[in-house]
Amino acid sequence: MTVPLTSRPRIKLPASAKVGDVIEIRTLFEHPMEPGFRRAPDGQPIPRDILARFHAQANGERVVQVDLRNATSANPYLVFHARIVGPTDFDFVWTHEDGRTASTAAHVAVK
């Protein structure tokens, strides 16, 4: 039984920036990232349950894609950057190994 992707994705980025600025974006998604080789205290194996990919786009163009593997900590916390060239609509998508996705969006205005 895998955990439903019901976490509210958390994104931290500035509401506005100047053209040419490089902004920092922090993201966190609550998920156990269970690698599938651990055992519960009762000895039962804990089934694999892993987010495989995170994807950030700015106005439809790729900013970063992260392939997540076994040694990504639970509740994946990812920090990266984006260069602002104008008003920007960001889309953030987390994709489970089984194909399910969760997403959120944010807007950065230009000062």
Binding site: V64, L68, R69, A71, T72, F80, H81, A82, R83
Partner: peptide
């Protein structure tokens, strides 16, 4: 395996962090 970050010029800066 831990993770791979795929960047682009739109990233602006080749600096990433994770746990």
């Amino acid at each position: 395996g831990i993770a791979s970050f795929r960047l682009s010029p739109a990233s602006g800066k080749a600096e990433v962090a994770m746990r």
